[in-house]
Simulated scan of single mutants.
Amino acid sequence: MSEFMYGVVLWSDLSAGKAVFWCEDHGDLAFYEGDAETGQATLEFSPGDLVEFEVETEQRLRRARDPKLVGGQVFRDLPEVLRAREALASQEMPEPAPMVLPFAGKQKRAAGATR
């Protein structure tokens, strides 16, 4: 079963007629390959372009079919933004310092003992 979806081109290789689309449902990426039978690469997309395509899942892999350009360079910064977020997420976060809260009862007793 297939459905139509919008996506943003994250990567494309014009000479090979291949591209990777980030899908509007934020699910798995969709992969596009030009017409393998004729060997013609019909791809003219660049990273950041908004496209509409038919998506089918084959053996747990999303495949884009018949993509059409909706808007050129609509999300031109998206590939870099996603790379930056991935790099930030992969950085080791320092362990939070243990938080020690003084117990108020001990402070009052200690203050009363010195009088």
Rank of each mutant, 00 (worst) to 15 (best):
residue 49 D to Y: 05
residue 1 M to W: 04
residue 41 A to M: 02
residue 25 D to C: 03
residue 115 R to F: 09
residue 110 A to T: 08
residue 108 K to V: 15
residue 61 L to A: 07
residue 74 V to F: 13
residue 20 V to L: 12
residue 80 E to N: 08
residue 6 Y to H: 09
residue 19 A to T: 04
residue 109 R to Q: 04
residue 34 G to D: 12
residue 100 V to M: 12
residue 80 E to Y: 06
residue 12 S to K: 05
residue 25 D to E: 09
residue 64 A to K: 10
residue 7 G to L: 08
residue 62 R to K: 14
residue 79 P to W: 10
residue 2 S to D: 06
residue 41 A to R: 03
residue 113 A to P: 00
residue 94 P to D: 01
residue 53 F to M: 12
residue 59 Q to Y: 03
residue 108 K to W: 00
residue 17 G to H: 02
residue 17 G to P: 03
residue 26 H to A: 08
residue 76 R to A: 14
residue 70 V to T: 05
residue 26 H to S: 06
residue 42 T to C: 02
residue 18 K to L: 10
residue 90 S to M: 14
residue 105 G to E: 15
residue 90 S to Q: 15
residue 11 W to D: 03
residue 36 A to I: 09
residue 24 E to W: 01
residue 6 Y to M: 03
residue 113 A to C: 07
residue 110 A to G: 02
residue 45 F to M: 13
residue 56 E to D: 04
residue 53 F to N: 03
residue 24 E to P: 00
residue 25 D to G: 05
residue 21 F to Y: 07
residue 39 G to N: 06
residue 9 V to G: 06
residue 60 R to W: 04
residue 66 D to I: 10
residue 56 E to H: 00
residue 103 F to Q: 15
residue 94 P to G: 03
residue 17 G to S: 08
residue 93 M to F: 14
residue 37 E to D: 07
residue 41 A to S: 15
residue 99 M to T: 07
residue 51 V to N: 01
residue 111 A to K: 11
residue 18 K to C: 09
residue 101 L to G: 05
residue 99 M to L: 14
residue 79 P to G: 07
residue 76 R to T: 10
residue 46 S to E: 07
residue 109 R to T: 11
residue 103 F to A: 15
residue 57 T to W: 00
residue 35 D to W: 00
residue 78 L to G: 08
residue 114 T to K: 13
residue 113 A to T: 07
residue 99 M to S: 10
residue 67 P to I: 12
residue 4 F to D: 00
residue 79 P to N: 06
residue 78 L to W: 07
residue 54 E to Y: 02
residue 103 F to C: 14
residue 49 D to R: 02
residue 66 D to E: 11
residue 63 R to F: 04
residue 57 T to L: 00
residue 18 K to A: 10
residue 47 P to S: 09
residue 93 M to G: 02
residue 72 G to R: 15
residue 9 V to L: 10
residue 54 E to L: 05
residue 51 V to P: 00
residue 34 G to I: 01
residue 1 M to R: 02
residue 43 L to V: 05
residue 13 D to M: 04
residue 56 E to T: 15
residue 57 T to C: 01
residue 35 D to E: 11
residue 85 R to I: 04
residue 55 V to I: 15
residue 63 R to H: 11
residue 16 A to P: 01
residue 87 A to T: 08
residue 75 F to E: 11
residue 109 R to N: 01
residue 100 V to I: 12
residue 22 W to K: 09
residue 97 A to M: 03
residue 74 V to H: 12
residue 95 E to D: 05
residue 114 T to F: 06
residue 6 Y to E: 06
residue 45 F to W: 06
residue 33 E to C: 00
residue 34 G to N: 08
residue 53 F to Y: 13
residue 55 V to W: 00
residue 10 L to V: 11
residue 86 E to C: 01
residue 77 D to V: 14
residue 84 A to V: 06
residue 61 L to N: 10
residue 74 V to R: 13
residue 115 R to V: 10
residue 28 D to W: 06
residue 105 G to M: 09
residue 67 P to F: 06
residue 16 A to F: 00
residue 37 E to H: 03
residue 42 T to G: 13
residue 60 R to H: 08
residue 64 A to T: 15
residue 89 A to S: 11
residue 62 R to W: 10
residue 8 V to M: 05
residue 25 D to R: 07
residue 93 M to V: 12
residue 14 L to C: 04
residue 41 A to E: 11
residue 30 A to D: 03
residue 94 P to L: 07
residue 105 G to L: 13
residue 25 D to W: 11
residue 30 A to F: 02
residue 64 A to G: 13
residue 32 Y to W: 08
residue 2 S to I: 13
residue 92 E to R: 15
residue 86 E to F: 05
